[in-house]
Write a protein that binds this DNA or RNA. Structure first.
Ligand SMILES: [Zn+2]
Ligand SMILES: [Zn+2]
Ligand SMILES: [Zn+2]
Ligand SMILES: [Zn+2]
Lengths: 165, 165
DNA sequence: ACTTTTAATGTAATATCGTAACAGTTTAAC
DNA sequence: GTTAAACTGTTACGATATTACATTAAAAGT
């Protein structure tokens, strides 16, 4: 039965309408900030926009480079502060294997993020399989380990890259 | 059926005989180098000994600090070269969430390393559950993703730390 | 409205992690 | 012994991330 659940997979296809990704994310951000009475400041919005601009992960310094509005070069800490905020809000994820950041594709869905990282096109999707997270939880508990946090990153080749040789 | 397989869990208990961990690892290293006609040089042995000295992960610069035999401070690259060698041989693993390194607890067992990281005692074990790796593989494939490499790090509290409050 | 408190920003410096490049040396192979 | 491959020494640098502290802006309390 539980094996029949549909997976909530999201891997960005080549011709998906990406502007709707961006719009949804910014909308969710605004709504969530309103709800939690948090401030969606310029820096935070800008960093989110930069990250959301594609499904390829960006390093903190890549983001920083794109923050040169007003011609001034920002200090690294400016990017990191905004990133911390966005990560805590669940709008952005950190990829530990890449030291890089991506926008969440499943905001508001209460998921254990599991990443699909295509090493050819560099796009990143989210597998977010409950079957996987539950299997990890069960086996860890069986081993006498109490799980607080799971980190799952899957490196390989996405469907479209596999097709195009 | 397959759910009845015993897990090959290894989490270092407080009173395990750790010198046998070290001896086994060094023995395996020597044997593997002999078999593959690779050179188990001083640096490589020393780095392996340092990493194997406990089940707590060490950063590259921590390792470096302990390489001051002959009083001379080694350059970072010395540690990284030895680490690369040991990782390729499967004797050492890198923990991406910690930028740190641990000795493998399952040398020669052809495993997808899955780490149990206790955030209290800092010890690291290996879950290495085939059920987990197969679940990941299946769900990723179902999502149209071809898996080359899995990265699973589980952060939480180990059995002994949970017991002692 | 003014004061108090909290949150966010500006700025500089520094810590931590990792790699490139290249000359010199040792070891293994021929 | 000569050659080729692997390893080492050394320097410099690149990339990632945090600490500390002064300043400003916003929210909350009166
Ligand atoms: Zn998109
Ligand atoms: Zn997500
Ligand atoms: Zn041990
Ligand atoms: Zn291992």
């Amino acid at each position: 039965m539980e094996d029949m659940e549909a997976l909530p997979v999201r891997f960005p296809s080549r011709q998906h309408n990406h502007s709707s990704c961006v719009n949804k994310l910014l909308g969710d951000a605004e709504e969530e900030c309103r709800r939690q009475k948090l401030r969606f400041t310029e820096h935070r919005r800008k960093v989110l926009e930069i990250i959301a601009s594609s499904h390829k992960p960006l390093g903190a310094y890549d983001i920083l480079e794109q923050m040169n509005f007003s011609g001034r070069r920002q200090a690294p800490v400016v990017a990191y502060r905004a990133l911390d905020f966005l990560i805590n809000l669940g709008l952005v994820h950190r990829l530990n294997s890449l030291n890089a950041f991506v926008a969440c594709m499943a905001v508001g869905e209460d998921h254990t993020a599991q990443f699909l990282i295509c090493r050819q096109c560099k796009n990143v999707g989210e597998l977010n399989s409950n079957r996987v997270s539950e299997r990890i939880e069960k086996d860890a508990v069986e081993a006498g380990f109490q799980v607080d946090q799971q980190l799952v990153e899957i490196i390989g080749i996405c469907y479209e890259c596999a097709e195009s040789g």
